[in-house]
């Protein structure tokens, strides 16, 4: 008898089976369909990356069929649109690095000090008042910063440095620096806030001042987060377009002197895009080769940042 009843018990009662099945199947199908659609939306982000990498590589490949990589990396002139065409990325690279260097030399110290002040020193009320201003600073459109650099900061600098040209990398870099301070300071501040209170208290208990605690305890503990703030700052500085296109000029110029005008990689792309270059010509392909260079620089720094973060990661 037991062998006959066992399979019966395993099956659900027939009434519920009949009542549930038709509606249940549609429901399950619909659930599966929705999950698939949502998955496709999430996976589309990979398609975007594939699109970016694919287009940059595809067009750059066509470019490097006509220009050798050695010329690209060693030629000291970038004149792709002239009759005597030279395709050396160095002038654009120097422009990009000098403007980014000026910006970071200003933004990293000021941003870090601001972050330490906001996290360790500032009374609650000061923070409440100041933070919206910093958010506002990061919301200003970059063309407006460009306007400010060209028509306010440059004339100001010309009074201090006589003979400063109307387009120069110094003013573009400084304004770009102000622009990225909020990013650097807000991420660094979050990292410092995340350091547990007892670590701070231990430092105060042995008689350290706020300054000693900040510099010797909080900053080293938060180094992982601070380094990702720096990497983000660097990415923004080399990828920024409008400020340098407006205030640093559009002439490629192989120089390390920030008081000279020079085009950056991004400014060159803008300059070409403003003209009317036919699709498929080498001039058109240069902007993709330039874009690829920019992308690889950002990537290299992000990877470096990843290892920095790993190196400094603190586990409490």
């Amino acid at each position: 008898m037991t062998t006959a009843t066992a399979p019966l018990i395993r099956r659900p009662p027939t009434a519920t089976r009949f009542a549930r099945r038709p509606a249940g199947r549609i429901k399950r199908l619909r659930e599966r369909l929705i999950e698939t659609l949502l998955f496709l939306a999430a996976a589309s982000s990979i398609a975007i990356t594939a699109g970016i990498v694919g287009i940059l590589f595809f067009e750059s490949l066509a470019f490097f069929k006509q220009v050798s990589l050695v010329d690209f990396l060693t030629d000291r002139q970038w004149t792709p649109l002239f009759d005597d065409a030279h395709y050396g990325i160095l002038p654009l690279l120097s422009g990009t690095l000098v403007t980014a260097g000026v910006a970071l030399a200003f933004a990293l110290p000021v941003g870090t000090v601001t972050a330490i002040y906001l996290s360790e020193y500032a009374p609650h009320k000061v923070r409440e008042v100041v933070k919206p201003f910093l958010e506002l600073l990061s919301a200003v459109p970059t063309v407006v910063f460009g306007y400010f650099a060209l028509l306010f900061v440059t004339p100001l600098l010309q009074r201090i440095i006589p003979g400063l040209p109307g387009f120069n990398m110094l003013s573009a870099g400084l304004v770009m620096g102000v622009m990225i301070i909020p990013y650097v300071s807000s991420i660094s501040e979050d990292a410092m806030k995340a350091v547990p209170m007892h670590i701070r208290e231990a430092s105060y208990a042995v008689g350290a001042t706020r300054f000693q605690t900040s510099v010797r305890v909080i900053v080293p503990s938060a180094m992982s987060g601070i380094s990702s703030a720096y990497v983000l700052g660097f990415s923004r500085a080399i990828g920024e377009t409008m400020v340098v296109a407006i205030a640093a000029g559009m002439q490629p110029n192989f120089t390390w002197n920030p008081t000279e005008p020079a085009a950056t990689i991004t400014a060159y792309i803008v300059q070409v895009a403003l003209g009317d270059l036919p699709h498929g010509t080498i001039g058109y392909q240069t902007i993709f080769a330039a874009g690829l260079t920019l992308m690889l620089m950002t990537l290299a720094f992000n990877i470096a940042g990843y290892f920095l973060r790993k190196r400094y990661r603190e586990i409490y």
């Binding site: 982000s45 990979i46 287009i55 067009e59 699709h279 874009g291 920019l294 950002t298």
Partner: peptide, 28 residues
């Protein structure tokens, strides 16, 4: 994991690179 890392990286891609992608892909 790949999707998550990818989204974090996309947030750091310079905006002008999106423009290049759109020029190559959407326009041409």
């Amino acid at each position: 994991t790949i999707i998550e890392i990818n989204i974090a990286n996309l947030a750091g891609v310079p905006s002008i690179v999106y423009g290049l992608m759109a020029l190559g892909l959407f326009v041409y």
